[in-house]
Design a protein around this nucleic acid. Structure first.
Lengths: 342, 342
DNA sequence: TTGAAAGCGCTAACAA
DNA sequence: TTGTTAGCGCTTTCAA
């Protein structure tokens, strides 16, 4: 008379196929189905077969959100980057993402736009997702951010810079060394009237400072510094050169905070009939792939971004899987690639 | 004598502060704390105050994984891109990501590397995360992928192309139209001996085909097609021009599948003393920011990538929040930007 | 406005 | 090898 079979139906549900559905169809317990899916050689071939068949028939896709909650392992890695439009970071992210994917991890991407405020909001959002690891471009400057990260207990790899006191792991290089080395390089070429183009960014400032100090220590005239603010474009490189030439026409070497800006300087120089490198040496930063094959080919500071991405992925995965990282602090260095422009 | 207070402790825990901890500290029920955090004006000012204080003191960060499981709303959007090293996609992703973040969503990034196999694995990984929306670069070609996506019930926006049968929403432009228009543009300039450089990619092929057809229909000689495979670099543009010139030295116009390749062609032409555009017209694709300010400035097909990212974010957010999307199929068009190179 | 109960879909822990 | 039980941390539903 009444409905004997009808068990009181659960109130909500996403409607999607669940592991229980699969288990029911295969005639096993949910946990057995779970094993058949995730660790197939923990179950008998017979059960494995039945469950796989059920998965196929239902089109079941495991819910990683639920799995992540139950196991406290999200298989998600978060990456914080200033901006992916700034091409110097793109290779790192691409390689990081690919390496993670091959190991079964997904990448969550966050952009700070070089804003500290934004970075803080981003950090909150990231920690809320409980990722298995966090990739940071640069070292975390704010002590609030450091504290939050430390408190979260999530493995962190800082990159793209060096510090004696990393939060956790570190894969970077020294910006001061770069500034110094580039100054030496240019001075060895007989240059003596230097200018420098930089954007609003802390690491670039450190390269700039080291560059200036080195030049001044050698007894040469001080470096003319042009700040393009947040405009890291070819165009602002062109405009910067115009300003520099108006102020100091005798300038014979310029160190730029990015390849794109350097490209702008080269472009403007050629447009003005200034011989590069004869009259003006130009050095970029980043060694973005295409600058090697331009005419004139750009002399620049090479950073192996791919390598940073790959190593960072390795560290993060190791820690996520409970393995120790043998070398948690790595200086990947840099190299000055001498081409035509200097 | 025995331990009256000690309730049998739960077996596992991530150890982090939970909402219950906050609630206990504030002297309210967990659900009340939840309301105070998420919908503050559903609780009395007094309770709100107490809970906020407890949050501050404990450093509580809500666990979005648990929240997502309970509410079936992950506030996560997944994006599928061929590659972020291919700069034409970068602006779209940047804007998509920023727009999403401002609305409280995070972006999960997946790269296919133009590989179908990889795309399938990626889709599986994405669906398993139950994102609130999926952004696809290009239309989903495989029927298997379409079926999977449809079955998942997740809102999808395909972009960067047009089709009469989108899975769900669509924001794109016509590649055939581009091929045709560029051919018309070049013919109107009096050009007649065409070459075309393309990479291995389905959309580029469609631009190429339309370009050829238009040229041939006009009774002009067939277009020489050079395929650079998967090497979308400035260098391969230079090499392609060398090959083209060897085969057809009379070539007077080249349509390239990307700005970077076009830059390579321009570079090689200048290196060989070929006047651009007098002897050779060059048209790129994408209008990547820096090509406008080079010398010669590149004539190219402008795609408003930012706009696509912003609109896609809007559609996806609307659908995630249960709002209808008034215009689910949008042709954002393109424009040929005439500069110096053609 | 507040709370109790139930459960999202899965896996860890334990037992058989 | 398989299953039972309990719970991950949160929100929905319903009731007060």
């Amino acid at each position: 008379m009444n409905e004997p079979e009808k068990i009181k139906k659960s109130r909500r549900s996403s409607g999607a196929i669940t592991l229980s559905d699969v288990a029911k169809l295969a005639g096993v317990a949910p946990i057995t189905a779970s094993r058949a899916v995730n660790t197939p050689n923990q179950v008998s071939p017979e059960v494995r077969q039945k469950v796989q068949e059920a998965v196929r028939r239902t089109g079941y896709v495991p819910n990683r959100v639920a799995g992540g909650l139950a196991s406290s392992r999200s298989r998600l890695i978060a990456a914080v980057v200033p901006s992916i439009v700034v091409s110097v970071f793109v290779e790192t992210i691409e390689t990081l993402n690919n390496t993670l994917f091959e190991a079964g991890y997904q990448l969550m991407l966050g952009q700070t736009g070089y804003s500290a405020e934004r970075e803080e909001a981003l950090l909150e959002a990231i920690i809320g997702r409980r990722p298995d690891g966090i990739f940071l471009t640069g070292i975390m400057p704010s002590s609030k951010g450091r504290t939050r990260l430390l408190a979260s207990g999530i493995p962190v790899v800082e990159t793209w810079d060096l510090t004696p006191t990393p939060i956790d792991m570190l894969i970077g290089f020294s910006h001061s060394d770069i500034g110094r080395e580039v100054a030496h390089f240019l001075m060895a070429k007989g240059r003596s009237r230097f200018a420098l183009i930089r954007a609003d960014d802390e690491r670039g400032t450190r390269r700039a400072t080291a560059f200036r100090n080195t030049v001044v220590q050698r007894g040469l005239p001080d470096v003319l510094v042009d700040n393009v603010g947040s405009s890291r474009t070819l165009k602002s490189g062109r405009e910067a050169l115009s300003r520099i030439l108006a102020q100091a026409p005798e300038t014979d070497a310029i160190f730029c905070s990015s390849d794109l800006i350097a490209l702008g300087v080269v472009t403007e120089a050629i447009a003005r009939g200034i011989a590069v490198p004869q009259r003006l040496s130009i050095v970029g930063f980043g060694d973005v792939p295409y600058v090697a094959n331009m005419v004139p080919a750009l002399t620049t500071v090479h950073i192996n971004g791919s390598n940073i991405g790959r190593m960072a992925a390795g560290c993060l995965i190791a820690r996520a899987e409970g393995r120790a990282v043998d070398n948690p602090i790595v200086d990947v260095g840099f190299s000055i690639i001498e081409r035509d422009s200097a």
